[in-house]
Nucleic acid binder design. Sequence first.
DNA 1: GCCAACGTTGGC
DNA 2: GCCAACGTTGGC
Length: 153
Amino acid sequence: MNYWLMKSEPNAFGIDDLEKMPNQTEHWDGVRNYQARNMMRDDMKVGDQVFFYHSNCDVPGIVGLMEVVREGYPDHTAFDPQCKYFDPKSDPQNPRWIMVDIKYIKHTKRVISLAELKKCGALENMPLVRKGNRLSILPVTDQEWNTILKMEG
DNA sequence: GCCAACGTTGGC
DNA sequence: GCCAACGTTGGC
């Protein structure tokens, strides 16, 4: 089983929104970055565990746990001209963008803030804590996963 | 709101 | 294929 971290802006779609979805499940649409797409297409498997990370907000950090419940399939929002994620270059016969379905597991007991993650020596190799990182989906190692769960307290 | 870092685009 | 210009991300 693999571990991941996925970012979302709570203003747009936060963990509280995911919790309220039918079956507490939602498709993770709108990813328009090739590296992130490739991970969803090739590497994310049903049962993989995922940290939900709030970005671009008062206290950026990890706010909960989720799991992959459906593996990569075409992101239909790329075909809809009314949608802000519309991409005219994505051909329905040969979709350019991919999404997975994600299910809510729980909130962490508290927000594990980016500031705190940065202070943890065991996490210094995580791309997340590196300056300028913009990838919205990141692989997490077993050690990093366990370290972060321990930080939750 | 600022701005550094990064990815993408497109001219050549 | 290079690289400047541009747009976006996201912390602060």
